[in-house]
Design a protein around this nucleic acid. Structure first.
Length: 290
DNA sequence: GCCCAGGTGAAGC
DNA sequence: GCTTCACATGGG
């Protein structure tokens, strides 16, 4: 017998669900006319925005919704975050263009694995690779009648049990050995992703960067999107372009060193949020301004 | 065909 | 130290 669909409202001011789910933090959300569907912690869920709330549909039993509110971070007071941003013109423009953009709090393994697969790939292609991976190696999850099949993100142990060749069949190319090694170390307990969240930022970053294929950028994505280290500031090609154009206009040769120093000093206690606003602003609100 | 994509590691000065 | 290049794959 099919479990029952349960609907629930979560009050959330200034929550732009579409911007948040499309902003390159998470790669598994599908947009349909009646909402966004995805899988969180092995549960199927559909989300809609009502303007002042996020409406969620999930399958009973669903008395405890912390798996969802924690993921969506609906309890974060966005005004306080925005007040912590620097008052410069670029940040104000980014906030005006991306009002309601939020940071999610994702599962560390899914986040780590996904960003290992992200290097020199467009977001659309990352989504496709992750979908391939879940369909091949993830556990099927229960979905409402009439909904397309869905899968949980595959566990480290499951991925550690397959070959590099099998992973390459998911179209991840040269990233396959990196993902495999991360899965092996995690499954073997050499890397404890739960403990990492309790460590200081620098220690956690260092541990992640011990993994082959994980450098500063991918480590910072995991620190920010999965562990909530709010000062982690991933610098990718888009953010680099934003920083150069908006903060170092007509300056030839700004070194990575100078960029990093500026980032560390300029963006304040919610630097990670500021980074996400700059990223989304460059990608969506300022198309083709080179 | 060419260039680029939420990078990283190895090899070359 | 810093720059250059290969790495798979697909879209514009």
């Amino acid at each position: 017998m099919m479990p029952q669909l349960v609907i629930r409202l979560f009050p959330a001011h200034d929550y732009d669900l579409a911007a948040t789910l499309r902003s390159g933090q998470a790669f598994r959300w599908k947009c349909a006319e009646n909402g966004w569907t995805g899988v969180i912690s092995g549960r199927w869920v559909r989300l809609r925005s009502t303007g002042t709330s996020v409406e969620a549909e999930a399958l009973a039993p669903a008395d405890d919704w912390t798996w969802l509110t924690h993921y969506l971070q609906t309890d974060v007071a966005l005004e306080e975050v925005l007040r912590g941003f620097p008052g410069d013109e670029p940040m104000q423009s980014a906030v005006a263009a991306c009002r309601g953009l939020r940071l999610l709090r994702q599962d560390p393994w899914e986040c780590l694995a996904s960003f290992i697969l992200s290097s020199t790939k467009q977001i659309l292609q990352i989504q496709q690779i992750v979908a391939n991976l879940c369909e091949c190696y993830g556990q099927p999850v229960v979905v409402p009648a009439g909904e397309p099949a869905a899968w949980a993100f595959p566990s480290p142990a499951r991925l550690a049990s397959v070959t590099e060749t099998e992973l390459r069949a998911c179209k991840m190319g040269f990233r396959a050995p990196y993902l495999l090694e991360a899965a092996r170390r995690t499954a073997a307990g050499e890397l404890d992703l739960t403990e990492l969240g309790k460590a200081p930022l620098d220690v956690a970053r260092g541990r992640l960067m011990e993994l082959p294929g994980v450098g500063r950028k991918i480590a910072d994505c995991v620190l920010l999107f999965a562990y909530g280290f709010q000062s982690a500031f991933p610098v990718d090609v888009w953010v680099l372009k934003a920083l150069r154009q908006l903060y170092f206009p007509r300056r030839r040769r700004v070194t990575p060193r100078q960029i990093q120093q500026f980032v560390d000093e300029h963006f304040g206690p919610y630097a990670g949020y500021a980074q996400q606003y700059l990223f989304h602003y460059m990608r969506v609100a300022r198309p083709r301004m080179d």
